[in-house]
Write a protein that binds this DNA or RNA. Sequence first.
DNA 1: GCAGATACAACAATCGATTGCAATAGCCTT
DNA 2: AAGGCTATTGCAATCGATTGTTGTATCTGC
Lengths: 340, 340
Amino acid sequence: MNDGTAPPRRIRNIAELARLAGVSAGTVSRALANSSLVNTETRETIQALARLHGFRPNQMAKRLRVKETKVIGIVVPLGHERRQHLSDPFFMAILGHLADALTENGYDIMLSRVIPDAEDWLERIVDSGMLDGVLLIGQSNQFEAIERVAAWYRPMVVWGSHRPGQVHCTVGVDNRVGGRLAGECLIGAGRRRLAFLGDTAAPELSERYLGLCDAASAAGLAPPIKLETHLASDIMAEEIAGHIERIGAEVDGIAAASDLIAMHAVRALADRGLAVPGQISVTGFDDLPLAEQTIPRLTTISQNITAGARAMVDVLFERIAGTAAASVEMAPTLIRRDTA
Amino acid sequence: MNDGTAPPRRIRNIAELARLAGVSAGTVSRALANSSLVNTETRETIQALARLHGFRPNQMAKRLRVKETKVIGIVVPLGHERRQHLSDPFFMAILGHLADALTENGYDIMLSRVIPDAEDWLERIVDSGMLDGVLLIGQSNQFEAIERVAAWYRPMVVWGSHRPGQVHCTVGVDNRVGGRLAGECLIGAGRRRLAFLGDTAAPELSERYLGLCDAASAAGLAPPIKLETHLASDIMAEEIAGHIERIGAEVDGIAAASDLIAMHAVRALADRGLAVPGQISVTGFDDLPLAEQTIPRLTTISQNITAGARAMVDVLFERIAGTAAASVEMAPTLIRRDTA
DNA sequence: GCAGATACAACAATCGATTGCAATAGCCTT
DNA sequence: AAGGCTATTGCAATCGATTGTTGTATCTGC
C-alpha cells in the first residue's frame, strides 16, 4: 500500500508461496529453480510472486536435502599460540585471495580460528556436515592431527610444508630453500654472525631455520642462533626488543621468520641506534604488499601468495570432484630491497 | 583390529547408531545431548559407541530443526571498490577481535566479501536461513540498501558512521570529531595548507573529511584539498605517488583516511626527498598495531578496535535476544607519535 | 475416433536430526 | 490388590526444501 508495490507480508517457506500461487510445493521449487518441467507461464507467475514478497528459499533445508553445502571452511590452527593472530598480515593476505577464488566459484566461507585443545578439533570441523571442504592455513604444531584426519577425509588442503611420505595434501613454498636463500643473501652482504628470529614449533618455520643453517654451514659459518618469538603481535614487539637488547653486537645478520617479525626487528634496531642495513642486515619472509612500503624497504623471500591461494583452491576443487590431486610445492625467490 | 580399538566403520546418521545400540533414534539424540531423560547407563553406552565410531551428528539437520544456526555472518561490502581489500589491515584487525568474541560464545563465522552489484545483495545474505545475525564491516556506499534491510531485520550491527535518524544500528567512532582532531594536530604543528587523502564515497571517510574542514575553518584556513584514493592496495600505492608528485610543495599537512594510506604517503614522500615530519606532517586514522612499528611512527587517530569489536558483538547478541539495543558511538583520540 | 506421445503438475519420499506425547514397566502407597 | 507415580523409551510429527514417480489432460497422426 506504500508505493504501489503490494503488501510486504513475509512468506516463510515454499509451502506458503505454493498455497498463494495455487500450486504444489514441488512446482514452486522447480519454478524457482527455473526448471523447464514447469510451464513457462506458471513459472513466471511464481517467480513474480516470489519477487514481490521477497521470498528466498531456505538454504539450510536445501543443503540438507542435496547434501552439498557450498561452504568451504578456512581454518587457522593456533596450536603453538594461545593468543589470537588472526590479524597476522600474512594470514590476511592469503585469506583475501582465497575469498576471491571461492566466491567466484559460488562457495561461501566459514572461518574458524581454532585453539586445538580438544584433541579431535579437526574431526569436529570436518565432520560437522556443514562443509564441502576445508582449507587449513598453516600446520602449526598439529601435524599428527592433520595426518589422522587426512587418512579418511579427502577434500582438505593445507598451506604449509611438505614432508616426504605425508598423507595430507599441502600447497606451499619450499621453506628450506627459502631459508637458504635468506642465509645466502645475508652472507653475500658480508654478514658472518647470523640469527634466526621466529618460533620453530611450526614445521614451516623450522624448515626455514634449517635452510638458514644449510647456508651457514656451506659458507663455513657457525650455526645461526635461534631466537624464539611468539607470533601474537603485542608480545612479539617486546620479545623482539628483548632479543635485540641482549644480542646487540653479537649478531650482524638476522633472518626473520616473517615480514612482520622483520618489521618489528628493524624498528627495535632503530630504537637502539643500530642502522639497517648499515650495521646489521635483516631479511623477511612472505613478501607481503607491506614489505615494499616500509622504510627501509624489506629484503625478503617471496611466497607468491596469489598463486599459492589459487593453487589451494584449484587442488581443493579437484579433490572435491574426486581426483586425488597431489601437493604443490612452489619455489621461493629472493626479493632484494633495502634491508639486506 | 589395528590397535585394540575396534572397527573404524563409519556411521552416517543417528538412525544407524540407534540400530547398533538397539534403541530408537530419539533416545540416541537425547543421549548425545546428555539429557537426563535417558537412563544413565544407556546414555553412557550410547556415548561410548558414538565415540568409538567417531560419530558426530549432522549440524545442518540439527540447525534446520531447531531453527538456530549458531552462525554469524561477517560481511564486507565493497561498493565503491571493485577490487578486493579483504586484506586491508584495519579489516583484518577488527575481524580478529570479532572472531575471538564470537568463537568464545560458541558461534561460527561465515565470511562474505560482497561486491554489491545485485541490488538485493544484503537481502540475499540475511534471508539465506543460514545466519542468526549479521555484522557489517563498513557502510561503503550502500547506506540505502542497509537501511532498507534494517527496517525489518533486527539482528544486524554495522561498523561505521551514525547519521541522525537512521534505522540501522551502528558501532563506531565519531568520525567527524576524529577528522577534526587530525586537523587540529596538523594546524598545531604549524601546517596551513592541508589535504585529505582518501575516498570520500563511504560515509565514514566523508565524515572524516568534514571534520578536517571544521578544523581548517575554525583556524581561518582554506578548505583542505581532497585527494581521491582507492583502497585496493596495489593501485593505492601508485595513486598516492601520483598525488604527491602533483601537489608536492603546495601542501604541508596531509590527513590520511587510514593508517595504511598514511604509510603509503610517508613512503611516497620519502621517495621524493620530502622529510616527514620535517617538511610535511602526516596523520593516519585507525591506530593499527602497525602504526607503532613504522619508521617514523605514525601519528594517528585511535579507533579502539578492540572495544569496538566487543561492542558490536554485545549489541548483536542483545538484538538476537530481542532487545532493541541502540547504536554505540565512541570517542576517537589523538595518538601523537612522530609523523605530525 | 483411437492409440500413443507429450506436457504439466500433484504426490510422497527423503535429507538427518529434535522433541512433544504416548506407552510401558516397575515401584510405592494404602 | 488396585490405583497412582516415576523413570525410561518408542513413536511420529516437524524443520523446509528437492526430486523420482505417478496421474491426467491435451495433442498428434493415421
